[in-house]
């Protein structure tokens, strides 16, 4: 089982111009690997994650997915703002074929939102949204979990709890983690894809690549 991206092209239209994000992108992700997508802002990390998840279509090329993937777990809305946390969790449980009550219970335990579980999502703070989203992704099983920069949110207590849950989850499923910082990728990944410097660079030497990346970004910042 794997995820394979074959000859992907993707561009966005900004005003009248086309902004090319990917051209002839090929990527093979075997099951069980923990992959970090590393790159500066605007390198196309989240776009790539959404294409892997299937919520965005490439302009050209194919994404062959023969394992179950999560939605991109992040801050941005994969929740219906007018519905409560409970109802959003129930919806999610249903589409993944899980018992809604059980999932709601697990999410409520993990996210520690108390009475807010019954309030509409639009009243949540960013941190609360992230906690609900992360809790939900922990309650449901996937072959591969897609995470968009979410490990950096919340207070220290929650971050610790989330990291512990993720460590446990990594034993049985793969993850794809998007980050512009190297620390969470070194901590969680055994394979890294660097975006934003021409053709994507793939390596198993996460620590080595991260060191190079940090050096490169620092010299860029100095030059600017």
């Amino acid at each position: 089982m794997s995820i394979e991206l074959i000859d992907i092209a993707k561009s966005y239209r900004i005003g009248r111009k086309r902004h090319l994000v990917f051209e002839g992108l090929n990527l093979f992700i075997p099951k069980g690997r923990s992959v970090g997508l590393l790159g500066p802002n605007g390198a196309g990390k989240s776009t790539l994650l959404r294409m892997i998840g299937g919520s965005e279509l490439p302009d050209r090329g194919r994404v062959v997915r023969n394992m179950t993937v999560s939605w991109p777990v992040g801050f941005s809305g994969f929740f219906q703002g007018n519905l409560s946390g409970v109802n959003n969790a129930r919806f999610c449980a249903r589409i993944y074929g899980r018992d809604p009550d059980e999932v709601v219970r697990e999410v409520a335990d993990f996210a520690e939102l108390g009475g807010f579980m019954k309030a509409p999502i639009r009243t949540y703070s960013t941190g609360m949204r992230a906690r609900l989203g992360f809790g939900l992704s922990m309650a449901i099983d996937f072959d591969c979990l897609l995470i968009d920069e979410i490990l950096a949110v919340g207070d220290a207590g929650f971050r610790q709890k989330a990291q512990a849950a993720l460590d446990q989850r990594r034993q049985r499923s793969g993850i794809i983690l998007v980050s512009h910082a190297t620390a969470p990728i070194i901590r969680n990944c055994d394979m890294v894809v660097v975006l934003g410097f021409g053709a994507p660079f793939v390596s198993d030497d996460v620590a080595g690549v991260a060191r190079e990346y940090d050096l490169c970004m620092r010299s860029r910042a100095r030059a600017a």
């Binding site: 998840g53 994969f78 589409i95």
Partner: peptide, 11 residues
């Protein structure tokens, strides 16, 4: 009204 839900791979 449902763009949020389109983030789920199966929707």
């Amino acid at each position: 009204a449902n763009t949020a839900l389109l983030n789920y791979p199966q929707v």
